[in-house]
Design a binder for these strands. Structure first.
Length: 470
RNA sequence: GACCCGUUCGUCUAAGGGUUAGGACACCGCCCUUUCACGGCGGUAAUACGGGUUCGAAUCCCGUACGGGUCGCCA
């Protein structure tokens, strides 16, 4: 029998490093919103750490004072918390490597720069500090992409000038500190990963080409670099980079749009990772259990909002009733429905199977809590085509008025008897009844809806409807 | 432009030399339902192209095309 262990793989199994405690990090730059790409990177890092019993840290890369804002920081942290991606070290959590804001870690960078200086590896250039890149081939052993080799001295000696549209001579040595003293991403990123003992750097594939620079810096500092895993990018449906404008690009919009954190995380996990079997719906706990870098594929994916909604709908169906009520409350309140109304639990039970987001819930059950029905023009026009509409409504009204047991069963029986009186079938009465009482041609199971609506309200609406059509 | 990475149904993906190339979303049809849905069943639909290697290639190699990324005193 073939054993998986015998397979040759450049991706090490976790058992290869029994003694190593995994430490991953998410290092956002607070210059905008929490983007789906960043959130997915955070998710993969979080899952990998949780899967392997390690630590997940949050480090804020705010070295660009011009662009970093407190508001952006708040939005990003809120987004991560909403998704349930808790961090063991970082803002609000503290940790052995405080501060976790790069803007507050100057002394540390100064110290590392001094090391490079002592080794003669940096020099000043018009006020900036440059790091001498080595003239040798550097090879990244990427956990997803395999081996990638580059010689920075060669590759960096030419630069593409976008305006001239051709290559020009360039200094291959990396600027690591600005003339104003501010440090540059590549340097602080490496220093902090080293200082904070990061073992696995999981990041977007857009950083693959930067990695040799980081390898050079780790080498110059005499350090062993972490393992790298570059994950494929998520593109928009047109196949280009996702922008804030694209539907589904910003995490806070999911929250506002009635998505569940677990649903969004599930869909993000699926874009670029597969459990290798047919399972597609995973709880957070299952993701932690199943996620691994070996299941990450290497090609970019296009974001499919429709499938994201479907995944969310599946999570909605699996929610316990009490939990659904809790999650739905803000969306009900926003639509003017009191979440504490005793009819809410049953109403949610009628609506839950037919929505994909919490935000769609009021649209299905709102009529139960409204003073009057809001009539949909197309629906009314559809039933008005029937010549016997007035008689039908009258028959329904009479049958309902005579019903003492105002339950779904009693209501069905009343419709049945009205149908018999008219010499037609119950099915033929359902649509007029639905439109007259709820205003819409579609919606949840009608009889239980009417039971919740109440006898008086139903009779009133039937009378109002007669006024509408005459 | 140079360098790097990639390419299986429209989309997300499975298949690690031998499968009628599997699943999911979307779409279409049928069934169920005296309403609306859910659900169930079925269907359309893919290995970018060209060369190798091999008895045999989606799978390994080379080339081409296409897509993405990088080439900042942004991260």
């Amino acid at each position: 029998m073939e054993s998986a262990i015998e397979r040759i793989d450049h991706r090490p199994a976790c058992a290869t490093f029994p003694a190593m405690t995994v430490r991953t990090r998410f290092a956002p730059s607070p210059t905008g919103f929490l983007h789906i790409g960043g959130a997915r990177t955070a998710l993969y890092n979080w899952l990998y750490a949780r899967r392997h019993g390690g630590s997940f840290l949050l480090r804020v890369e705010d070295t660009d004072a011009e662009r970093s804002t407190a508001e952006s920081m708040r939005v990003i942290l809120d987004g991560l918390r909403w998704l349930g991606l808790d961090w063991d070290e970082g803002p609000g959590a503290g940790g052995p490597h405080v501060p976790y804001f790069q803007s507050e870690r100057r002394e540390i960078y100064d110290r590392y720069l001094a090391k490079l200086d002592a080794a003669g590896l940096v020099y000043e250039d018009e006020g900036a500090i440059r790091f001498r890149v080595p003239d040798k081939i550097l090879t990244v052993s990427d956990l997803v992409c395999g081996e990638v080799s580059t010689n920075l001295k060669e590759a960096g000696s030419r630069r593409y000038d976008a305006e001239l549209k051709r290559e020009v001579e360039a200094n291959p040595d990396l600027v690591i500190r600005r003339p104003n003293g501010g440090y540059i991403f590549h340097f602080v990123n490496v220093v902090d990963d080293l200082e904070m003992g990061i073992t696995h750097v999981i990041r977007g594939e857009d950083h693959l080409s930067n990695t040799p620079k980081h390898l050079a810096l780790f080498g110059a500092l005499g350090a062993t670099p972490p393992r790298f895993a570059h994950i494929p990018l998520n593109l928009n449906p047109s196949g280009t980079k996702m922008s804030k404008r694209d539907q589904g690009a910003l995490i806070h919009e999911y929250q506002e749009g009635g998505f569940l954190p677990s649903g969004v995380a599930n869909y993000m996990a699926l874009l670029g990772w597969s459990a290798k079997d047919d399972q597609e719906i995973f709880s957070m706990a299952e993701l932690v259990e199943r996620f691994d870098l070996s299941g990450v594929n290497s090609s970019n994916s296009k974001f499919d909002y429709g499938k994201c909604r479907w995944v969310n709908g599946e999570h909605l169906k699996r929610l316990a009733p009490a939990e659904l009520a809790g999650q739905a409350a803000p969306f009900l309140a926003k639509a003017g429905i009191d979440p504490a109304d005793p009819r809410v639990p049953e109403a949610l039970g009628l609506a839950r199977e037919r929505v994909q987001t919490l935000a769609e819930l009021p649209g299905i059950i709102g009529t139960i809590f409204a003073d009057a029905a809001t009539y949909d023009e197309a629906a009314v026009a559809k039933v008005k085509e029937r010549a016997d509409l007035p008689q039908t409504i009258t028959a329904l009204e009479t049958a309902f008025a005579a019903t003492d047991e105002w339950t779904a069963e009693g209501i069905k029986a009343a419709v049945q008897s009205a149908a018999e009186g008219l010499g037609s079938k119950m099915g033929a009465l359902m649509l007029p009844c639905r439109v007259a009482t709820t205003g819409s041609a579609s919606g949840a199971d009608l009889a239980p809806m009417l039971a919740l609506l109440g006898k008086e309200a139903v009779l009133r609406r039937l009378r109002e409807f007669v006024g509408q059509i005459s």
